[in-house]
């Protein structure tokens, strides 16, 4: 059974087949698809004629529509395969692969944050909890409770910023230790990262605000040896497994025994260079066993508990790590500086 619609369908499909055989691009194929089966294409147009087909022919005409659609799809698929195959086999590419990619510019972390985040994550791994405290402190938490003598030079208004009400800008992150111990029973295992202030006129190596991270571990039978192992682990994580540490006796009011901790120079691996002034060592941390007076001040029994504390400067580590020769660059925020990290 045949009618005008079926004939038109068949010839349109045949014409489409020819065109698809000749097609050289996906675009050509898409054009054929639209011509045939698009919203205004031949097949939808013919299907509108369906209402004029006598009822007895409708079934066959319907089948013819289905056949035509199926054939068309076959030809389309074949053409797509042919073109895909041909571009594979030719191995040629006509786009300029050397044009720059459309970059999704990623942001940059400030070097102070990078170093601080690194420090925090290393100590977190040892089980230290990160705690925080106010930057505007009282004299008690910043000095008295930390066993600082009443006439200690660090209390001098030439060295510390004071507010009219007798409070001050913390000169160290240590008041966070006191606040934590006041509010918690031992054992305590914390790090306190944060901003600190000293009344230094800014120059290449001084800044009136800078960053520190400080650690405190109070438990039964904590020793200088434990301090050494924690900082050695830190040194290896931060600067690599070749870095060694040494402790030198020192003095701080809030620790006894007190030590300064040197890391073997990260530039010359201890051989001696300009950065370490030929000593092979870099002074990185101040540390020691928490002074019994500090423990007493927060109500801990120094005969039962002992602990270590350490502190280090983030800017110093950042400057060593990236060889930044002027601390002020860190606060200038020139994007040409920031984008390097």
């Amino acid at each position: 059974m045949s009618n005008a619609i079926i004939e038109q369908l068949n010839s349109a499909v045949a014409a489409a087949e020819e065109k698809l055989k000749a097609a050289t691009s996906e675009n050509d194929i898409e054009n054929v698809r639209i011509e045939m089966n698009g919203r205004k294409g031949i097949i939808p147009a013919l299907s509108k004629e369906m209402k004029n087909v006598p009822p007895e022919q409708r079934k066959d005409t319907g089948i013819a529509f289905n056949d035509a659609k199926n054939k068309l799809q076959e030809f389309l698929d074949a053409a797509v395969d042919r073109i895909a195959g041909s571009s594979d086999s030719s191995g040629e590419c006509d786009i300029d692969l050397t044009l720059p990619g459309r970059k999704w510019q990623s942001g940059r972390k400030h070097p102070i944050s990078t170093v601080m985040d690194d420090c925090v994550s290393i100590f977190r791994r040892m089980g230290f909890i990160v705690v925080d405290g106010p930057e505007i402190e009282d004299v008690y938490h910043n000095f008295d409770a930390l066993n600082t003598p009443a006439d200690h030079p660090s209390r001098d208004p030439g060295d510390t910023f004071y507010f009219g009400d007798g409070r001050l800008l913390r000169t160290q992150t240590s008041p966070v230790q006191i606040r934590t111990m006041e509010n918690n029973d031992p054992p305590i295992r914390i790090v306190a990262p944060g901003r600190t202030f000293r009344r230094d006129t800014p120059d290449a190596t001084h800044s009136m605000n800078f960053h520190q991270i400080e650690g405190l571990y109070i438990d039964r039978n904590v020793s200088l040896g434990d301090l050494k192992s924690a900082l050695l682990y830190f040194a290896h994580e931060m600067f690599g497994p070749k870095v060694g540490i040494r402790m030198r006796p020192h003095f701080f009011p809030f620790t006894e025994p007190s030590v300064e901790v040197d890391f073997s120079c990260i530039m010359c691996e201890g051989k001696g260079c300009r950065i370490c002034k030929n000593s092979g060592w870099l002074e990185i941390a101040g540390a020691g066993m928490v002074d019994p007076n500090v423990l007493k001040n927060v109500g801990y029994d120094p005969d039962e508990w002992s602990g270590y504390a350490w502190g280090m400067g983030i800017e110093r580590i950042a400057m060593l790590r990236y060889r930044i020769n002027d601390i002020r660059f860190l606060y200038e925020n020139d994007v040409r500086f920031l984008e390097q990290f």
Partner: peptide, 26 residues
């Protein structure tokens, strides 16, 4: 503690052994 400092200092801080890191749940 002041005596501990003196004894550690003269004994040598380098001579203090490095125990394994004491790690606890953070």
């Amino acid at each position: 503690a002041d005596l501990a400092e003196e004894i550690a200092r003269i004994h040598g801080l380098d001579a203090i052994p490095v125990p394994p890191v004491k790690s606890v749940l953070g």
